[in-house]
Write a protein that binds this DNA or RNA. Structure first.
Lengths: 196, 196
DNA sequence: CTCTGGCTATAACGCTCGTCATAGTCTAGC
DNA sequence: GCTAGACTATGACGAGCGTTATAGCCAGAG
Protein backbone atom coordinates (compact mmCIF):
# COMPACT_ATOMS: atom_id res chain seq x y z
CA UNK A 1 0.00 0.00 0.00
CA UNK A 2 2.71 2.44 0.95
CA UNK A 3 4.20 2.16 -2.49
CA UNK A 4 2.12 4.87 -4.13
CA UNK A 5 3.33 4.58 -7.72
CA UNK A 6 4.87 8.02 -7.71
CA UNK A 7 6.14 7.85 -11.29
CA UNK A 8 2.57 7.97 -12.45
CA UNK A 9 1.78 10.97 -10.33
CA UNK A 10 4.85 12.88 -11.41
CA UNK A 11 4.22 12.00 -15.03
CA UNK A 12 0.80 13.60 -14.73
CA UNK A 13 2.23 16.78 -13.24
CA UNK A 14 4.94 17.03 -15.87
CA UNK A 15 2.41 16.37 -18.59
CA UNK A 16 0.16 19.06 -17.19
CA UNK A 17 3.00 21.57 -17.24
CA UNK A 18 3.77 20.73 -20.83
CA UNK A 19 0.18 20.86 -21.91
CA UNK A 20 -0.47 24.16 -20.12
CA UNK A 21 2.61 25.63 -21.76
CA UNK A 22 1.10 24.81 -25.13
CA UNK A 23 -2.61 25.47 -24.85
CA UNK A 24 -3.00 27.57 -21.76
CA UNK A 25 -4.71 26.64 -18.53
CA UNK A 26 -8.37 26.91 -19.46
CA UNK A 27 -7.91 25.08 -22.72
CA UNK A 28 -6.19 22.13 -21.05
CA UNK A 29 -8.73 19.45 -20.26
CA UNK A 30 -8.18 16.77 -17.70
CA UNK A 31 -9.33 14.11 -20.11
CA UNK A 32 -6.75 15.00 -22.72
CA UNK A 33 -4.12 15.51 -20.07
CA UNK A 34 -4.70 12.01 -18.75
CA UNK A 35 -4.41 10.60 -22.24
CA UNK A 36 -1.26 12.63 -22.92
CA UNK A 37 0.30 11.38 -19.67
CA UNK A 38 -0.87 7.82 -20.36
CA UNK A 39 -2.74 7.82 -17.06
CA UNK A 40 -6.36 6.85 -16.53
CA UNK A 41 -8.79 9.67 -15.97
CA UNK A 42 -9.82 8.25 -12.61
CA UNK A 43 -6.23 8.43 -11.41
CA UNK A 44 -6.03 12.18 -11.82
CA UNK A 45 -8.80 12.65 -9.29
CA UNK A 46 -7.23 10.03 -7.08
CA UNK A 47 -3.89 11.82 -6.96
CA UNK A 48 -5.32 15.33 -7.10
CA UNK A 49 -8.60 15.23 -5.22
CA UNK A 50 -9.03 19.00 -5.42
CA UNK A 51 -9.28 18.65 -9.17
CA UNK A 52 -7.96 20.87 -11.88
CA UNK A 53 -6.99 23.69 -9.59
CA UNK A 54 -4.63 21.51 -7.59
CA UNK A 55 -3.22 19.96 -10.74
CA UNK A 56 -2.53 23.36 -12.25
CA UNK A 57 -0.91 24.62 -9.08
CA UNK A 58 1.41 21.64 -8.85
CA UNK A 59 2.27 21.90 -12.53
CA UNK A 60 3.28 25.54 -12.16
CA UNK A 61 5.33 24.80 -9.07
CA UNK A 62 6.93 21.86 -10.85
CA UNK A 63 8.01 24.01 -13.77
CA UNK A 64 9.03 26.89 -11.52
CA UNK A 65 11.32 24.83 -9.34
CA UNK A 66 12.76 22.94 -12.29
CA UNK A 67 13.85 26.22 -13.86
CA UNK A 68 15.06 27.44 -10.50
CA UNK A 69 17.26 24.40 -10.12
CA UNK A 70 18.92 24.96 -13.46
CA UNK A 71 19.30 28.65 -12.77
CA UNK A 72 20.85 28.07 -9.37
CA UNK A 73 23.39 25.70 -10.82
CA UNK A 74 24.42 27.77 -13.81
CA UNK A 75 24.52 31.07 -11.95
CA UNK A 76 27.56 29.75 -10.09
CA UNK A 77 29.53 30.74 -13.16
CA UNK A 78 28.14 34.28 -13.05
CA UNK A 79 25.06 36.15 -14.25
CA UNK A 80 26.05 35.98 -17.90
CA UNK A 81 26.34 32.19 -17.75
CA UNK A 82 23.00 32.02 -15.95
CA UNK A 83 21.38 34.10 -18.67
CA UNK A 84 22.81 31.81 -21.33
CA UNK A 85 21.46 28.74 -19.57
CA UNK A 86 18.08 30.37 -19.01
CA UNK A 87 17.83 31.20 -22.69
CA UNK A 88 19.12 27.84 -23.84
CA UNK A 89 16.46 26.15 -21.75
CA UNK A 90 13.59 28.05 -23.34
CA UNK A 91 15.13 27.92 -26.76
CA UNK A 92 15.15 24.16 -26.53
CA UNK A 93 11.51 24.00 -25.50
CA UNK A 94 10.36 26.34 -28.25
CA UNK A 95 12.44 24.75 -30.98
CA UNK A 96 11.81 21.14 -29.99
CA UNK A 97 8.07 21.74 -29.96
CA UNK A 98 8.18 23.54 -33.31
CA UNK A 99 6.95 26.78 -31.71
CA UNK A 100 4.04 25.06 -30.03
CA UNK A 101 5.19 25.08 -26.41
CA UNK A 102 6.27 27.99 -24.28
CA UNK A 103 6.38 28.82 -20.60
CA UNK A 104 3.62 27.35 -18.43
CA UNK A 105 4.13 30.02 -15.80
CA UNK A 106 3.42 32.74 -18.33
CA UNK A 107 0.43 30.80 -19.64
CA UNK A 108 -1.15 30.71 -16.20
CA UNK A 109 -0.33 34.36 -15.58
CA UNK A 110 -2.35 35.64 -18.52
CA UNK A 111 -5.68 34.04 -17.66
CA UNK A 112 -8.24 35.99 -15.74
CA UNK A 113 -8.85 34.77 -12.20
CA UNK A 114 -12.50 33.90 -11.58
CA UNK A 115 -14.68 36.23 -9.54
CA UNK A 116 -12.81 37.92 -6.72
CA UNK A 117 -10.43 35.30 -5.40
CA UNK A 118 -6.90 34.56 -6.58
CA UNK A 119 -6.52 30.90 -7.51
CA UNK A 120 -3.50 29.10 -6.03
CA UNK A 121 -2.12 28.41 -9.50
CA UNK A 122 -1.79 32.13 -10.12
CA UNK A 123 -0.09 32.61 -6.77
CA UNK A 124 2.30 29.81 -7.70
CA UNK A 125 3.08 31.61 -10.94
CA UNK A 126 3.92 34.78 -9.04
CA UNK A 127 6.19 32.78 -6.75
CA UNK A 128 7.94 31.19 -9.71
CA UNK A 129 8.69 34.58 -11.25
CA UNK A 130 9.87 35.90 -7.90
CA UNK A 131 12.16 32.92 -7.42
CA UNK A 132 13.82 33.38 -10.78
CA UNK A 133 14.23 37.11 -10.24
CA UNK A 134 15.68 36.60 -6.79
CA UNK A 135 18.31 34.15 -8.02
CA UNK A 136 19.31 36.43 -10.86
CA UNK A 137 19.43 39.50 -8.63
CA UNK A 138 21.54 37.73 -6.03
CA UNK A 139 24.04 36.68 -8.64
CA UNK A 140 24.17 40.17 -10.09
CA UNK A 141 24.81 41.66 -6.67
CA UNK A 142 27.47 39.07 -5.97
CA UNK A 143 29.23 40.20 -9.10
CA UNK A 144 29.24 43.90 -8.45
CA UNK A 145 25.83 45.25 -9.32
CA UNK A 146 24.26 47.45 -6.72
CA UNK A 147 21.01 46.45 -5.06
CA UNK A 148 18.46 48.48 -7.06
CA UNK A 149 20.16 47.86 -10.36
CA UNK A 150 20.24 44.12 -9.68
CA UNK A 151 16.52 43.93 -9.05
CA UNK A 152 15.75 45.96 -12.14
CA UNK A 153 18.00 43.95 -14.41
CA UNK A 154 16.63 40.68 -13.03
CA UNK A 155 13.08 41.80 -13.75
CA UNK A 156 14.05 42.88 -17.25
CA UNK A 157 15.71 39.54 -17.94
CA UNK A 158 12.70 37.51 -16.87
CA UNK A 159 10.19 39.81 -18.58
CA UNK A 160 12.25 40.06 -21.75
CA UNK A 161 12.75 36.34 -22.07
CA UNK A 162 9.11 35.52 -21.35
CA UNK A 163 7.93 38.11 -23.83
CA UNK A 164 10.42 36.96 -26.43
CA UNK A 165 9.24 33.37 -26.12
CA UNK A 166 5.71 34.45 -26.93
CA UNK A 167 6.92 36.55 -29.85
CA UNK A 168 8.89 33.60 -31.21
CA UNK A 169 5.77 31.46 -31.11
CA UNK A 170 3.70 34.04 -32.95
CA UNK A 171 6.33 34.64 -35.62
CA UNK A 172 7.44 31.04 -35.81
CA UNK A 173 11.00 32.32 -35.71
CA UNK A 174 13.72 32.43 -33.09
CA UNK A 175 14.77 35.94 -34.03
CA UNK A 176 13.12 37.70 -31.08
CA UNK A 177 14.88 35.47 -28.58
CA UNK A 178 18.18 35.95 -30.40
CA UNK A 179 17.84 39.71 -30.43
CA UNK A 180 16.75 39.86 -26.82
CA UNK A 181 19.62 37.65 -25.75
CA UNK A 182 22.18 40.00 -27.22
CA UNK A 183 20.57 43.01 -25.60
CA UNK A 184 20.32 41.33 -22.21
CA UNK A 185 23.96 40.30 -22.35
CA UNK A 186 24.90 43.92 -22.81
CA UNK A 187 22.62 45.05 -19.99
CA UNK A 188 24.12 42.50 -17.61
CA UNK A 189 27.64 43.43 -18.63
CA UNK A 190 26.81 47.05 -17.94
CA UNK A 191 25.29 46.25 -14.57
CA UNK A 192 28.15 44.17 -13.23
CA UNK A 193 30.75 46.44 -14.77
CA UNK A 194 29.38 49.94 -14.47
CA UNK A 195 27.67 49.18 -11.19
CA UNK A 196 24.83 51.70 -11.39
CA UNK B 1 -30.12 48.78 -46.31
CA UNK B 2 -26.76 50.36 -46.87
CA UNK B 3 -26.73 51.50 -43.29
CA UNK B 4 -25.06 48.43 -41.78
CA UNK B 5 -24.99 49.44 -38.12
CA UNK B 6 -21.24 49.47 -37.95
CA UNK B 7 -21.08 50.59 -34.33
CA UNK B 8 -22.45 47.22 -33.36
CA UNK B 9 -19.84 45.42 -35.40
CA UNK B 10 -16.98 47.43 -34.00
CA UNK B 11 -18.27 47.04 -30.49
CA UNK B 12 -18.11 43.28 -30.94
CA UNK B 13 -14.53 43.42 -32.18
CA UNK B 14 -13.44 45.70 -29.37
CA UNK B 15 -15.21 43.50 -26.86
CA UNK B 16 -13.49 40.46 -28.30
CA UNK B 17 -10.10 42.09 -27.94
CA UNK B 18 -10.83 42.97 -24.33
CA UNK B 19 -12.17 39.54 -23.50
CA UNK B 20 -9.26 37.76 -25.18
CA UNK B 21 -6.84 39.93 -23.27
CA UNK B 22 -8.42 38.71 -20.04
CA UNK B 23 -9.21 35.07 -20.55
CA UNK B 24 -7.22 34.02 -23.57
CA UNK B 25 -8.51 32.96 -26.94
CA UNK B 26 -9.73 29.44 -26.26
CA UNK B 27 -11.45 30.43 -23.05
CA UNK B 28 -13.40 33.23 -24.72
CA UNK B 29 -16.80 31.98 -25.82
CA UNK B 30 -18.86 33.67 -28.44
CA UNK B 31 -21.93 33.53 -26.26
CA UNK B 32 -20.28 35.41 -23.42
CA UNK B 33 -18.62 37.76 -25.85
CA UNK B 34 -21.97 38.67 -27.36
CA UNK B 35 -23.37 39.31 -23.92
CA UNK B 36 -20.33 41.39 -22.95
CA UNK B 37 -20.68 43.46 -26.13
CA UNK B 38 -24.44 43.75 -25.70
CA UNK B 39 -24.92 42.19 -29.09
CA UNK B 40 -27.19 39.27 -29.91
CA UNK B 41 -25.51 35.95 -30.51
CA UNK B 42 -26.99 35.70 -33.98
CA UNK B 43 -25.36 38.99 -34.93
CA UNK B 44 -21.87 37.69 -34.34
CA UNK B 45 -22.34 35.08 -37.02
CA UNK B 46 -24.00 37.63 -39.23
CA UNK B 47 -21.05 40.03 -39.06
CA UNK B 48 -18.39 37.33 -38.87
CA UNK B 49 -19.61 34.43 -40.96
CA UNK B 50 -16.33 32.57 -40.62
CA UNK B 51 -16.97 32.30 -36.92
CA UNK B 52 -14.60 32.53 -34.04
CA UNK B 53 -11.47 32.42 -36.14
CA UNK B 54 -12.44 35.53 -38.07
CA UNK B 55 -13.53 37.28 -34.91
CA UNK B 56 -10.23 36.53 -33.19
CA UNK B 57 -8.24 37.69 -36.19
CA UNK B 58 -10.07 40.97 -36.40
CA UNK B 59 -9.76 41.49 -32.67
CA UNK B 60 -6.00 41.03 -32.79
CA UNK B 61 -5.68 43.36 -35.75
CA UNK B 62 -7.89 45.89 -34.02
CA UNK B 63 -5.69 45.91 -30.94
CA UNK B 64 -2.50 45.85 -32.98
CA UNK B 65 -3.36 48.86 -35.09
CA UNK B 66 -4.76 50.76 -32.13
CA UNK B 67 -1.44 50.44 -30.34
CA UNK B 68 0.39 51.24 -33.55
CA UNK B 69 -1.57 54.44 -33.92
CA UNK B 70 -0.64 55.61 -30.44
CA UNK B 71 2.95 54.56 -30.94
CA UNK B 72 3.24 56.35 -34.24
CA UNK B 73 1.93 59.56 -32.73
CA UNK B 74 4.03 59.57 -29.59
CA UNK B 75 7.24 58.49 -31.28
CA UNK B 76 7.31 61.86 -32.98
CA UNK B 77 8.76 63.16 -29.74
CA UNK B 78 11.49 60.53 -29.78
CA UNK B 79 11.95 56.91 -28.70
CA UNK B 80 11.91 57.73 -25.01
CA UNK B 81 8.55 59.44 -25.32
CA UNK B 82 7.26 56.52 -27.35
CA UNK B 83 8.36 54.11 -24.65
CA UNK B 84 6.61 56.18 -22.01
CA UNK B 85 3.37 56.20 -24.02
CA UNK B 86 3.62 52.48 -24.72
CA UNK B 87 4.05 51.77 -21.04
CA UNK B 88 1.37 54.20 -19.95
CA UNK B 89 -1.07 52.49 -22.28
CA UNK B 90 -0.53 49.06 -20.82
CA UNK B 91 -0.29 50.36 -17.31
CA UNK B 92 -3.74 51.83 -17.72
CA UNK B 93 -5.19 48.59 -19.01
CA UNK B 94 -3.68 46.50 -16.24
CA UNK B 95 -4.53 48.91 -13.44
CA UNK B 96 -8.04 49.76 -14.64
CA UNK B 97 -8.90 46.10 -14.90
CA UNK B 98 -7.44 45.35 -11.48
CA UNK B 99 -4.81 43.05 -13.00
CA UNK B 100 -7.40 41.11 -14.96
CA UNK B 101 -6.67 42.32 -18.47
CA UNK B 102 -3.43 42.28 -20.40
CA UNK B 103 -2.38 42.23 -24.02
CA UNK B 104 -4.65 40.36 -26.44
CA UNK B 105 -1.80 39.91 -28.90
CA UNK B 106 0.24 38.09 -26.31
CA UNK B 107 -2.77 36.03 -25.30
CA UNK B 108 -3.22 34.77 -28.84
CA UNK B 109 0.49 34.13 -29.23
CA UNK B 110 0.69 31.64 -26.38
CA UNK B 111 -2.00 29.24 -27.53
CA UNK B 112 -1.04 26.21 -29.53
CA UNK B 113 -2.16 26.28 -33.15
CA UNK B 114 -4.31 23.28 -34.06
CA UNK B 115 -2.87 20.48 -36.14
CA UNK B 116 -0.40 21.68 -38.75
CA UNK B 117 -1.82 24.95 -40.01
CA UNK B 118 -1.23 28.42 -38.63
CA UNK B 119 -4.51 30.16 -37.86
CA UNK B 120 -4.91 33.70 -39.20
CA UNK B 121 -5.25 35.08 -35.68
CA UNK B 122 -1.73 33.92 -34.88
CA UNK B 123 -0.41 35.45 -38.07
CA UNK B 124 -2.15 38.69 -37.11
CA UNK B 125 -0.40 38.57 -33.74
CA UNK B 126 2.98 38.21 -35.44
CA UNK B 127 2.16 41.17 -37.65
CA UNK B 128 1.17 43.26 -34.66
CA UNK B 129 4.46 42.57 -32.91
CA UNK B 130 6.37 43.31 -36.10
CA UNK B 131 4.53 46.58 -36.56
CA UNK B 132 5.35 47.77 -33.07
CA UNK B 133 8.98 46.75 -33.40
CA UNK B 134 9.31 48.43 -36.76
CA UNK B 135 7.98 51.74 -35.48
CA UNK B 136 10.27 51.65 -32.46
CA UNK B 137 13.29 50.69 -34.53
CA UNK B 138 12.66 53.44 -37.06
CA UNK B 139 12.44 56.02 -34.32
CA UNK B 140 15.61 54.73 -32.73
CA UNK B 141 17.48 54.91 -36.01
CA UNK B 142 16.17 58.39 -36.66
CA UNK B 143 17.64 59.43 -33.35
CA UNK B 144 21.10 58.05 -33.83
CA UNK B 145 20.99 54.35 -33.12
CA UNK B 146 22.60 52.16 -35.73
CA UNK B 147 20.54 49.61 -37.66
CA UNK B 148 21.29 46.41 -35.75
CA UNK B 149 21.14 48.05 -32.38
CA UNK B 150 17.78 49.60 -33.21
CA UNK B 151 16.21 46.27 -34.12
CA UNK B 152 17.58 44.65 -30.99
CA UNK B 153 16.43 47.39 -28.67
CA UNK B 154 13.00 47.45 -30.29
CA UNK B 155 12.61 43.71 -29.77
CA UNK B 156 13.74 44.04 -26.18
CA UNK B 157 11.25 46.81 -25.52
CA UNK B 158 8.30 44.87 -26.89
CA UNK B 159 9.33 41.60 -25.26
CA UNK B 160 10.15 43.25 -21.95
CA UNK B 161 6.87 45.12 -21.76
CA UNK B 162 4.79 42.12 -22.78
CA UNK B 163 6.54 39.92 -20.25
CA UNK B 164 6.25 42.53 -17.55
CA UNK B 165 2.51 42.86 -18.11
CA UNK B 166 2.10 39.15 -17.50
CA UNK B 167 4.30 39.32 -14.40
CA UNK B 168 2.24 42.20 -13.04
CA UNK B 169 -0.92 40.17 -13.46
CA UNK B 170 0.55 37.18 -11.65
CA UNK B 171 1.92 39.23 -8.79
CA UNK B 172 -0.98 41.65 -8.70
CA UNK B 173 1.57 44.43 -8.48
CA UNK B 174 2.88 47.01 -10.90
CA UNK B 175 6.45 46.58 -9.71
CA UNK B 176 7.64 44.52 -12.70
CA UNK B 177 6.44 47.13 -15.17
CA UNK B 178 8.02 49.90 -13.09
CA UNK B 179 11.35 48.13 -12.92
CA UNK B 180 11.33 47.24 -16.59
CA UNK B 181 10.46 50.79 -17.56
CA UNK B 182 13.50 52.18 -15.79
CA UNK B 183 15.78 49.61 -17.39
CA UNK B 184 14.37 50.18 -20.86
CA UNK B 185 14.79 53.94 -20.51
CA UNK B 186 18.46 53.37 -19.82
CA UNK B 187 18.82 50.97 -22.74
CA UNK B 188 17.21 53.44 -25.10
CA UNK B 189 19.34 56.29 -23.81
CA UNK B 190 22.41 54.16 -24.39
CA UNK B 191 21.33 53.22 -27.89
CA UNK B 192 20.58 56.72 -29.12
CA UNK B 193 23.56 58.16 -27.29
CA UNK B 194 26.28 55.56 -27.55
CA UNK B 195 25.18 54.51 -31.02
CA UNK B 196 26.40 50.90 -30.98
C1' DC C 1 -49.17 49.88 -49.62
C1' DT C 2 -45.93 45.98 -50.75
C1' DC C 3 -41.65 44.12 -50.83
C1' DT C 4 -36.80 43.51 -49.89
C1' DG C 5 -32.99 42.60 -47.23
C1' DG C 6 -30.21 43.69 -43.11
C1' DC C 7 -30.53 42.39 -38.53
C1' DT C 8 -32.34 39.61 -34.48
C1' DA C 9 -34.53 35.89 -31.77
C1' DT C 10 -34.77 31.12 -30.61
C1' DA C 11 -33.98 26.50 -30.70
C1' DA C 12 -31.43 22.81 -31.76
C1' DC C 13 -27.21 19.72 -33.33
C1' DG C 14 -23.33 16.96 -31.55
C1' DC C 15 -19.60 17.49 -28.72
C1' DT C 16 -16.54 18.19 -24.75
C1' DC C 17 -16.02 19.90 -20.30
C1' DG C 18 -15.14 19.20 -14.74
C1' DT C 19 -16.61 16.35 -11.49
C1' DC C 20 -18.50 12.55 -9.03
C1' DA C 21 -20.02 7.72 -7.91
C1' DT C 22 -19.62 3.04 -8.20
C1' DA C 23 -17.72 -1.11 -9.00
C1' DG C 24 -13.73 -3.64 -10.13
C1' DT C 25 -8.67 -5.13 -10.08
C1' DC C 26 -4.37 -5.95 -8.08
C1' DT C 27 -0.85 -6.19 -4.57
C1' DA C 28 1.17 -6.10 0.24
C1' DG C 29 0.78 -7.81 4.81
C1' DC C 30 -0.96 -11.25 7.82
C1' DG D 1 -5.81 -17.87 1.38
C1' DC D 2 -7.64 -13.64 2.85
C1' DT D 3 -8.47 -9.02 3.80
C1' DA D 4 -7.40 -4.00 3.25
C1' DG D 5 -6.41 -0.36 0.74
C1' DA D 6 -4.19 1.79 -3.28
C1' DC D 7 -5.26 2.24 -7.92
C1' DT D 8 -8.25 1.78 -12.26
C1' DA D 9 -12.31 1.29 -15.25
C1' DT D 10 -16.61 2.97 -16.58
C1' DG D 11 -20.44 5.69 -16.92
C1' DA D 12 -23.16 9.29 -15.72
C1' DC D 13 -24.53 14.34 -14.35
C1' DG D 14 -25.51 19.04 -15.77
C1' DA D 15 -23.43 22.59 -18.16
C1' DG D 16 -21.31 25.08 -21.73
C1' DC D 17 -19.20 25.04 -26.24
C1' DG D 18 -19.16 26.41 -31.78
C1' DT D 19 -22.12 26.33 -35.18
C1' DT D 20 -26.29 26.09 -38.03
C1' DA D 21 -31.13 26.59 -39.31
C1' DT D 22 -35.35 28.75 -39.30
C1' DA D 23 -38.44 32.12 -38.53
C1' DG D 24 -39.53 36.93 -37.29
C1' DC D 25 -38.84 41.96 -37.06
C1' DC D 26 -38.46 46.40 -38.99
C1' DA D 27 -36.51 50.40 -41.76
C1' DG D 28 -36.31 52.05 -46.32
C1' DA D 29 -37.22 51.61 -51.66
C1' DG D 30 -40.65 51.22 -55.21
Amino acid sequence: MAKSSAPSRERIVAGAADMISRRGLNATSIRELAKHAKAPLGSTYHYFPEGKQQLATEAVRYAGTAVERILRKELDAGPAAGLRAFLALWRGIVVDSDYRAGCPVLAVSVEEPPADEIPPALAAAAEAFEGWERLLAESLRAHGADRDQAAGVAALVVAGVEGAIAMCRAKRSMTPLDLVERQLEAVIAGAVGGGG
